[in-house]
Write a protein that binds this DNA or RNA. Sequence first.
DNA 1: AATTAATGACGTATGTTTGCGACATTAGAA
DNA 2: TTCTAATGTCGCAAACATACGTCATTAATT
Lengths: 120, 120
Amino acid sequence: MFATLEIGNGELMKKLELFEENQQEIASLAKVLSHPARIAILQFLASTPTCISGDISDYLPLSRTTVSQHLKELKSMGLIQGDVEGLKIKYCLNKEGIEKLKSVFGDLFEEITPLENKIC
Amino acid sequence: MFATLEIGNGELMKKLELFEENQQEIASLAKVLSHPARIAILQFLASTPTCISGDISDYLPLSRTTVSQHLKELKSMGLIQGDVEGLKIKYCLNKEGIEKLKSVFGDLFEEITPLENKIC
DNA sequence: AATTAATGACGTATGTTTGCGACATTAGAA
DNA sequence: TTCTAATGTCGCAAACATACGTCATTAATT
């Protein structure tokens, strides 16, 4: 048995017990995009032919340590990948992760289209 | 005179002094989407004909006070609007804000398309 | 006018994120 | 083998986010 509640005009609506998978997935992806440094990193990786870790921290107005953490977060959400090349590490966008990101947000954006005829 | 730095193959790249407007705007919009409650609110508003504040807090597994704060954040980023109707407040999606959101993310997603032929 | 209901604002406790210096690890150069 | 450079990890401090109880405000009801 679900907990339900009545909304405005007598319709019944299921009360969320917890947030849904879907909502948590969107929120996690949004969180990784919620810092300008991480946006800058994605844009940098998309626009340069090389992608050595050190180049990224030289480019950003942040310490190497801090950039390393941002890279770790982007990697943990699958948006970038890092391939070891001797002593250096080459970072680049992860095709699958970026596609996933686009599709998840695409679905959300379709879902939240305001109705033209709504009385509000 | 810009600070510059050499990347990989001898190209010069401008060092960011601060994060750019563009990057900060994307990050702020992403931040407002970075909590499952706020995603749930947007979906709820898109899917119900009415949108009284109290209905939203009844629906979510959070206290009324907490929901009120999330509504405030969504409103401050222009994604929703709240119209006073006597004692109640009717919330709904803000067409302009939602369109802005879609266009900003659309631009980002176009920008960060991984190249098919990149050696990485 | 007094009561009730819907709501936002304030304060505060607890948890999370960010930024960074110091240290550890490892590949290649001397 | 020793030195240097590129990188990640750890631990801390400061800033920020989240959740919520209590209080204030105001509209409608009695």
